[in-house]
Simulated assay, not measured.
Amino acid sequence: MPSRPSHARGLDAFDRAILRIVQRDNKTPQRVIAEAVNLSAAAVQRRIAALEDAGVIARNVAVVDPDAVGLAITAVVEVHLRDERAATVDAAKALFRETPDVQQCYFVTGGVTFVLVIVSRDMRTYEALTRRLFAENDFVERYRTLVALDRVKADTAVVIP
């Protein structure tokens, strides 16, 4: 995945106010946003389009409750690669990016190569996935799974300074 440019320097107070609203509920009518930020609905529409074009608004999605669709297991997995050569890291990134069960993937520092958040239907399904992603891959040295007992907070909102 290419690095993302920083757009924060080009955001004004109106853009930031709009972002605070739409990241909580992107179905908020533009006239309601306009009233809240003291702009016209047309100005809000133009600003939202510009924020999307600039990549500040990366996607418009529905956030689905995993439990509601039968995904009972959430696991946080630490992955240690055998080496950190560019080809090895790139292969791991591609594999994790292509795996739908991997909800989040972070290439990190601190003695661990990757931290993944994985959602799965049950432990049997999760075990099969770990075999494919970790146990049967030569580039993985070891991994450690932390199974979530309770989803205390899972938010998508970014703090807008």
Rank of each mutant, 00 (worst) to 15 (best):
P2S: 12
S3C: 00
S3N: 04
S6L: 11
S6D: 15
S6R: 09
D12W: 03
A13N: 15
A13P: 07
F14E: 00
F14Y: 04
R16I: 08
A17C: 00
L19T: 02
I21V: 14
V22R: 01
Q23V: 05
D25P: 08
D25M: 03
K27W: 05
P29N: 08
R31K: 03
V32Y: 06
A34V: 06
E35F: 13
A36L: 04
N38Y: 01
N38T: 05
N38K: 10
S40D: 09
A41P: 13
A43Y: 03
Q45G: 13
R46Q: 15
A50M: 11
A54C: 03
A54I: 09
G55R: 04
V56C: 11
A62P: 10
P66H: 01
D67K: 13
A68H: 11
G70T: 06
A72M: 12
A75R: 00
V79R: 00
H80R: 10
H80D: 13
H80A: 07
L81G: 02
L81T: 13
R82S: 13
A87Q: 14
T88W: 04
T88S: 12
A94S: 10
L95M: 14
Q103L: 13
T109Q: 09
G111D: 12
V112N: 01
V115P: 00
V119K: 06
S120R: 02
M123G: 07
T125K: 04
T125D: 10
T130G: 03
R132L: 10
L133K: 02
F134T: 03
A135H: 11
N137M: 07
N137R: 14
F139G: 01
E141I: 02
R142F: 11
Y143H: 06
Y143M: 02
R144F: 02
T145N: 10
T145W: 02
V147E: 04
V147H: 06
V147T: 15
A148W: 03
R151C: 09
V152N: 04
A157M: 01
V158W: 12
V158T: 10
